[in-house]
C-alpha cells in the first residue's frame, strides 16, 4: 500500500522504538530505564502489527509489557540500586568508551553488510493473509516438538526462579 499514512506510521514508530530503547539504556535512574523499556516494547508491538503480524504484536505487548517489563521494575525496586553512583574509576571509563566504540563498529559492519547485499533490496509481496488458524495448526503438528520443549523450558524456568528466590527463606 502506497498510502502516506503507512509511511508516516512507519517512521514515527521506528523513531519511537529507537528513542525509547536509547532512553532505556541511558537513564541514570533505573526505574526510568524500566519505564522506557516498557514503552519501547509497546512501540515494538505496534511495529509488528504494522508489519502484518497482528497476533505477534499483541503477544509481544501482553508478554513483554505486562510481564517482562513489570518483572524488571519489581527487581529494580527489590534490589534497591536506585541511581547509579557518579563515581567513575579509570577502568569504568575505559570500559564505557570501549563498549560504545565496539557497538558503533558492530553497527557500521552490519550497515555495510546490509547495503552491500543487493538481493535484500526487495519489495514485499502482496499482503499475506495472517491466519491464526494456520499458525495454531502448524504449532500442534509440524512444530509440536519445539512447542513441548518451550513448555518444558518455561516450567523449568519457573521452578528455578522460585527456588532461587526462596533460598533465603529455606536457610532460616
Amino acid at each position: 500500500m502506497n498510502s502516506p499514512l503507512f509511511f508516516l506510521s512507519y517512521f514515527v514508530l521506528s523513531a519511537l522504538v529507537l528513542v525509547t530503547a536509547m532512553a532505556a539504556v541511558s537513564f541514570r535512574n533505573l526505574v526510568h530505564c524500566g519505564l522506557s523499556l516498557a514503552f519501547a516494547f509497546l512501540a515494538l508491538g505496534a511495529f509488528y502489527i504494522l508489519l502484518g503480524a497482528e497476533f505477534l504484536g499483541f503477544v509481544q505487548i501482553l508478554v513483554y509489557v505486562g510481564a517482562v517489563a513489570v518483572l524488571i521494575m519489581f527487581v529494580i525496586l527489590l534490589a534497591k540500586p536506585g541511581v547509579e553512583e557518579r563515581r567513575w574509576g579509570w577502568r569504568d571509563l575505559v570500559g564505557r568508551f570501549a563498549g560504545v566504540g565496539v557497538s558503533l563498529a558492530v553497527f557500521l559492519a552490519l550497515l555495510i553488510s546490509v547495503f552491500r547485499s543487493p538481493s535484500l533490496a526487495v519489495k514485499a509481496p502482496e499482503a499475506p493473509v495472517f491466519s491464526i488458524a494456520v499458525l495454531g495448526e502448524k504449532l500442534v503438528t509440524e512444530y509440536v516438538l519445539p512447542l513441548q520443549a518451550t513448555g518444558l523450558l518455561l516450567t523449568v524456568a519457573v521452578l528455578a526462579a522460585v527456588i532461587f528466590a526462596s533460598q533465603e527463606v529455606t536457610k532460616k
Partner: peptide, 25 residues
C-alpha cells in the same frame, strides 16, 4: 473489527500494570 480482538483486550489490560507502577513509584 480485529481478528485478534480478544488478545487485544488482554494486551491492553496488561499495560495498565505499568500505569499502576508509575502511580505507585
Amino acid at each position: 473489527e480485529l481478528s485478534v480482538g480478544i488478545l487485544f483486550f488482554f494486551a491492553m489490560g496488561a499495560t495498565t500494570e505499568v500505569a499502576v507502577f508509575m502511580a505507585g513509584w
